[in-house]
């Protein structure tokens, strides 16, 4: 076994144990996160089953091209993040910095586009909260079961804002973590530690990707 010069935290016997614990900790945290979003998606699924036609039509009011671009951006950021991890693993400071910066740029761009999308929905009067005007035009018969179509559409948009809002919140946290990693990588004091922490951060970033894929599928693609 190669000897490792850096010392583990006091509760650990060696660096391997510490690395293993850190990664497992993030995996367990992601399990929690999965169930958090799982509850939301379960709710969505049940309501979608009850109001299939209205939800399908309301989906058409969202901006699919922008969301598709965002999906591409986020998936690419997954790639750059993986490259940053590889670079840190190979102890290449400049490459680590470069790929981290690229990841942060892509993530920020994603949030910018998402913000623009929300703004355009606000302009089209599709934000149903805080007594904002809500105008929804529909070609369906006026009622879905016992409820007016506009009311059910409101429900759809509420779910949409909750899901994308919660996701954006996770993106913000992720960007914060990446910014911290960028600073650590810039100083490059303990490369082995940067390597270890970057792998943990990478897991989280990949998770945000996956959640977005689900949001994209449920809210943008299910049109029939």
């Amino acid at each position: 076994m190669p000897t490792n010069k850096s010392r583990p935290a006091v509760q650990f016997d060696d660096m391997d144990q510490q690395r293993h614990a850190g990664l497992l900790g993030m995996w367990v945290f992601l399990l929690t996160e999965t169930l958090l979003f799982g509850g939301l998606f379960a709710g969505f699924a049940i309501l979608r089953l009850q109001h299939g036609a209205v939800f399908a039509e309301a989906t058409g009011h969202l901006n699919l091209p922008l969301a598709a671009i965002n999906t591409a951006l986020l998936l690419t950021s997954g790639l750059t993040m993986a490259l940053a991890e590889l670079a840190a693993g190979a102890r290449l400071r400049r490459a680590t910095l470069r790929w981290l910066l690229a990841t942060i740029a892509l993530g920020t761009l994603f949030l910018g586009i998402k913000g623009f999308e929300w703004y355009s929905e606000f302009q089209r009067q599709l934000v149903p909260v805080l007594n904002l005007p809500f105008h929804y035009s529909s070609e369906l018969p006026a009622a879905s079961g016992e409820q007016p179509v506009a009311a059910v559409a409101e429900l759809f948009f509420n779910l949409y804002f909750i899901a994308t809002g919660l996701h954006a919140l996770h993106m913000l946290v992720g960007l914060g973590i990446l910014a911290a990693m960028l600073w650590l990588a810039h100083r490059w004091r303990r490369p082995d530690r940067i390597d270890r922490q970057l792998r943990i951060a990478g897991l989280y970033w990949a998770f945000i990707d996956v959640v977005w894929i689900f949001i994209f599928t449920c809210f943008y693609l299910l049109r029939a």
Binding site: L31, T32, L36, G38, G39, L40, G43, Q50, Q147, A151
Partner: peptide, 30 residues
């Protein structure tokens, strides 16, 4: 780890329902 987050999101929805009236648990909004 597996059950608590479901309560978390449920209470979040209750809070939003109570403050913003998002309708997820309200039959009047479907």
């Amino acid at each position: 780890v597996l059950a608590t987050p479901v309560l978390t999101v449920t209470l979040l929805l209750i809070g939003l329902e109570r403050t913003l009236g998002i309708g997820i648990f309200d039959p009047a909004l479907g």
